[in-house]
Design a protein around this nucleic acid. Structure first.
Lengths: 297, 297
DNA sequence: AAACTGTTTTTTCACGATAAAAGACATTAA
DNA sequence: TTAATGTCTTTTATCGTGAAAAAACAGTTT
């Protein structure tokens, strides 16, 4: 089967949304920039839009004929990257119990189970290995280290080190740095979310990530910035898995974020340090309580 | 051509060295454990040893018939892993000038140039990406970020953060921890090297790595331990590249290590911190001065 | 001339296939 | 009855291949 055309399908779906807003589409290069794909893909998209009667396409003119219907869209599941599919499958296995630390991981078996080639699984495992949950034995199998209490502690130790440093760097940024505007925007979003927390609490995790990434970026250190990928990944799956007291947890976190933001804006390093520590402490606590860990090794 | 039998060749060469010492070889499983390969490979090795008249092999008895000659060994270059070959090629290109930051990396071209399949190059690049020197553009090519001054500064920033913490953890380890014995051994090796520094200065980098890894391991944090791979890689190639004042640099470093070791043994956190800082400062200085960096971006 | 569209080439991504190496099972020797 | 050897099966490492997507080139339009 070779290679799926998910890039095309995903861009097509996103392209459909543009049709609602305008009467005619821009040039091919412009569309490419807008959707983040090459002109080749744009032309395939336009060809289909013409075929299904969504637009009339003749060279430069791309007139919208009708508004897209729900069945014009490709199904969501066909727009995923192979590595997303593999990651999801893998994480489901990992979190759905029965995945004891020390267990070995079989590339072939994983590939068969997910229904993909071994190469993709291998590449996924190599990429995934930087999260510290698996490890490769020299020309042999992979070993699962497991999502254990030890893992969570090691992760949060680094996180705290990095974030305290980034927050201090952030507070020391000059008045005219564009980050202060970004911070103001995030503050507004936090306030709005705080007001409607009862209904929108599940929107927090996305906001959380954007906030922390903004802070980490102030470190101007690629290793610190990249490390947030590990945290984001863990929190992403952790939140999907553990929904207990989600509303309460997020409500507390929003409040802590607002205090953290106020501290940053005060530029008082002592206050920043205190607010940051307080938030990280409760984040660690949340993560730790969610790990079952029947018996320690 | 599929897969090279470098595992066999490397193990065979190492196996030959055993023939010098004994009159007969141990059992197959024992040999496997000794050389770190499976029984399948051991049997292939024994078969060849028999064929070339090195041993007489009959079931359990494996009598050594003669001492191996130089031409019994497989050539060194045939014992390398594909990924080692790719890494060397890639680093040579990267360090041999003409590799400007921002330049794009072409998998196909690299593969053709080295004479390997694209899959191996892809896997190498994915593995290599954690070193922060290259970056992938979403479904497109890789971009070289370059071995720049910024990179060195970011790297050393993390290194210093991690090593100070590890050193403190080390000094706090209980009296009966086995690391103190390891440290004593390393101290001896340092003293011996210091005495003969004039002739053995090029043996320092291997000792350096063992010393710092021992310290980092005291952190009991996989992210800190794993990060030393980045440092080791950079220093490895950096030292190959820049031989200026190697003797002087290493002589200074050995002295600093000895002071560092003494501080650790004193268990005085203030002294440890000072000795560690001093050594890291000169390590950073060495690294920075070796980066040409004509014009900043 | 600048920016677009049409066409061709190149590169990335993913697969199945195959040899090397590991691992499992059966058999034999001490 | 344990621990080795002999044999068979499975898994990993690597390649060549082909479709998807990107990128380069050439020709048009404004």
């Amino acid at each position: 089967m070779s290679k799926s055309n998910n890039v095309y399908k995903d861009a097509y779906n996103r392209g459909l949304r543009l049709l609602d807003e305008t009467k005619s589409l821009p040039s091919e290069p412009e569309l490419g920039a807008l959707l983040g794909v090459s002109r080749t893909t744009i032309r395939t998209i336009l060809a289909r839009m013409e075929e299904t009667g969504l637009i009339a396409w003749n060279k430069r003119s791309k007139t919208v004929l009708r508004v897209p219907r729900p069945d014009d869209f490709f199904p969501e599941e066909e727009t995923d990257t192979l590595s997303q599919i593999i990651e999801r499958s893998f994480m489901r296995r990992l979190l759905a119990g029965g995945a004891e630390p020390g267990m070995q991981i079989n590339e072939l078996e994983l590939a068969r189970e997910i229904g993909v080639g071994t190469t993709s699984v291998r590449e996924f495992l190599i990429r995934f290995s930087r999260f510290g949950l698996i490890e490769k034995r020299r020309n042999s199998h992979w070993v699962l280290k497991g999502f254990t209490r030890a893992f969570a502690l090691e992760l949060t130790e680094i996180r705290e080190m990095f974030e305290l440093r980034s927050a201090a760097a952030f507070a020391a940024l000059p008045e005219d740095s564009p980050v202060w505007a970004d911070l103001d925007l995030l503050e507004d979003e936090h306030r709005r979310l705080a007001r409607e927390i009862a209904t929108r609490f599940n929107e927090f995790s996305e906001l959380d990530e954007r906030f922390h990434r903004l802070i980490h970026r102030a470190s101007h250190n690629r290793f610190i910035v990249d490390f947030y990928d590990v945290i984001a990944m863990i929190f992403h799956y952790h939140y999907q898995w553990n929904k207990a007291q989600e509303r309460e947890r997020n409500e507390v976190a929003v409040t802590e974020h607002l205090a953290y933001i106020a501290a940053l804006k005060s530029r008082d390093l002592g206050k920043v340090d205190a607010a940051c520590r307080k938030h990280l402490k409760s984040a660690r606590h949340t993560l730790l309580t969610s790990i079952p860990e029947g018996q320690q090794p």
